[in-house]
Design a protein around this nucleic acid. Sequence first.
DNA 1: GCTGCAAAAGCAAATGCTTTGCGTTAGCAT
DNA 2: ATGCTAACGCAAAGCATTTGCTTTTGCAGC
Lengths: 184, 184
Amino acid sequence: MTRPGGRSARVQRGVHDAVRALQAEGTAALTVPQIAARAGVTPSTIYRRWGDLADLLADVALERLQPESEPADTGSFGTDLLAWTEQYVDEMASPQGRGVLRDVAVPQGPACACGQLNRTQLELLRQRALGRGEQVPELEHLINAIVAPVAYRILFTADELDAEFARDLVENALAGQARTGSST
Amino acid sequence: MTRPGGRSARVQRGVHDAVRALQAEGTAALTVPQIAARAGVTPSTIYRRWGDLADLLADVALERLQPESEPADTGSFGTDLLAWTEQYVDEMASPQGRGVLRDVAVPQGPACACGQLNRTQLELLRQRALGRGEQVPELEHLINAIVAPVAYRILFTADELDAEFARDLVENALAGQARTGSST
DNA sequence: GCTGCAAAAGCAAATGCTTTGCGTTAGCAT
DNA sequence: ATGCTAACGCAAAGCATTTGCTTTTGCAGC
């Protein structure tokens, strides 16, 4: 039986906080014993709950990617999408953002969850637009045109990402309107 | 002074071979001492030359990504691009391909080199087409429309990638023709 | 509330990976 | 041939990781 409350929750929060604190201090290569000491637990606790360092980092990174608020409703799909993309690019452009995406991409499980997160957000924008009677591209088209290029730059290049890059992506995503659909 | 020939080269080949052999045998989590033993060198040699396991795996992965031949010339940019994309998707779709991309994405240096590799290939297709007098999209547009979506699926989803996916990407990349340029 | 069960944490020993200092080998230049 | 030194081997030291066992503590049933 799983046991979500009380001490377990306290330990989880403590460990997550420790990771974030150490990352914030710019600790280059953090280790499990280091995190454990900071969190006031023994290393074996971390190994047993998370498996290894990569899994733990992915877990923390995934939590950071969780949007703290709904995407803004700016009146039309184009401006909604632009606002969302700008925020996404902005979050990922910082060294911390790069680190987060890198951390989450390494293990198998969490990476899928990360992709799902973006899908949920974009689908919300789509549904909102469909509610207004707008024509919008399919979800997968948006993933290909917006999310994938950003992730690719972060992981495979040293390029600077800025608001102009975001603007170009959105423009391009809406340009063709080759593939527009009406629902899921 | 660097020293590329003789024993160094022999060691490098031996270690690379050992990694590939162990990966081919389906060894789940390979370790440096394991690789060293297989290659007939001491672990410290590997640590000094490659730094750590991730860097070594990235190095081997990068070598695998090296195209063994020029992309086929099929007569037109559209068919060239389709052939290239199909081959790219095919290589990456296998479990080994996924592993390779994952390995290469982790450290900073090699990831850029990997991106450069794709750029070189696609730029070759572009120049060939320009030589024929064709109109072709900008390189960065191709990266966004073809390479990024494939990499994204590999790293962030468990989706099956197939020839149809490749076809859709190419179709989409050439559909708008919004951004066509004439050279670098 | 109290009690019993078992999940999760602590502790410490054992294992195994990584680092490092130093002696040796062997490319490469003269 | 000889000298120089990058790169390797070896072995010891330093840590990270695993594991068996004990203790704590959340939760369910009285």
